[in-house]
Amino acid sequence: MGTADNAMGGSYGAREFGPSDWANARWRRRGGSRWSAFEILAMILGFIVFWPIGLAILGYKFWQSRYGGPDLQTLANNKWQDARTMMSSNSSWSSSWGCGGAMRSASRFYSPSTGNAAFDEWRTAELARLDEERRKLDDAQRDFAEYVDAIRRAKDREEFERFMAERRARPANGGATETH
């Protein structure tokens, strides 16, 4: 070996790594996040189902290794619990869509107050007017359905009476005469 090799620590500056040196190398521990089986499976399935999902998981893991943060499974569990808590505690969400009832009011899609009293009064009056119009339309639809039903019954009654009259007018033996 030459002088340059001795000064650089061996073969052109390359350092020899043993098994423990390789496992504990500083560049491998940056961020300290290892891939769990869940994350590997999620990434593979993400690429199979829709490639941006797999790419997002891969990007999250690189971000996590650089800046830290929870692993993917912990993050998913936290987000799932947050969503469940929000859905169970937010009663205005379930009532605004009429869950569990057949309420047909236009006001169910709006928040209770905007903070402007004049606007809230106008909105309440308009919603009441629209509810009244909806009720009138429902009544008109019901009346028309009853009218059409009455016409059908009358037509059916007329056809039935005509059939019965023709049946009575026929001879008893079916209209055929005997020939020998």
Rank of each mutant, 00 (worst) to 15 (best):
W22E: 12
R30Q: 04
W80P: 03
A102F: 10
S95C: 02
R162Y: 05
Q64V: 07
R170K: 05
A4P: 00
W93Y: 15
M103Y: 13
E126F: 03
M87Q: 14
I53A: 03
G68Y: 09
Y60P: 03
G100M: 08
A102P: 02
T3R: 11
F47P: 09
A176K: 04
E121V: 14
E158S: 06
A4Y: 08
Y67G: 01
L72K: 00
W35G: 04
N77V: 06
L127A: 03
F62C: 14
V49S: 08
W63G: 04
L58K: 07
G13W: 07
N78C: 04
P112C: 04
M8K: 12
R135A: 15
F50G: 04
R157C: 01
T74I: 08
E39V: 06
D156I: 00
F163E: 04
I53K: 04
A25G: 02
S36T: 15
D131S: 11
D21M: 05
R104T: 10
F38Y: 15
G115S: 06
N78D: 11
A42F: 01
A118E: 13
G100Q: 03
S11N: 15
D21G: 12
W122R: 13
E126V: 05
E158K: 07
S96Y: 05
E158Q: 09
T177F: 06
T85H: 05
T179A: 04
R123M: 12
M1C: 05
N173W: 09
K79A: 14
R34F: 13
N6F: 10
T114Q: 03
D138L: 05
S20V: 12
V49A: 08
S111T: 02
N116T: 09
R157N: 10
S94H: 15
L72V: 04
N6D: 12
Y67E: 02
G174S: 06
W80T: 08
C99F: 13
Q81P: 03
E161C: 01
N24Y: 07
E121A: 15
G10D: 03
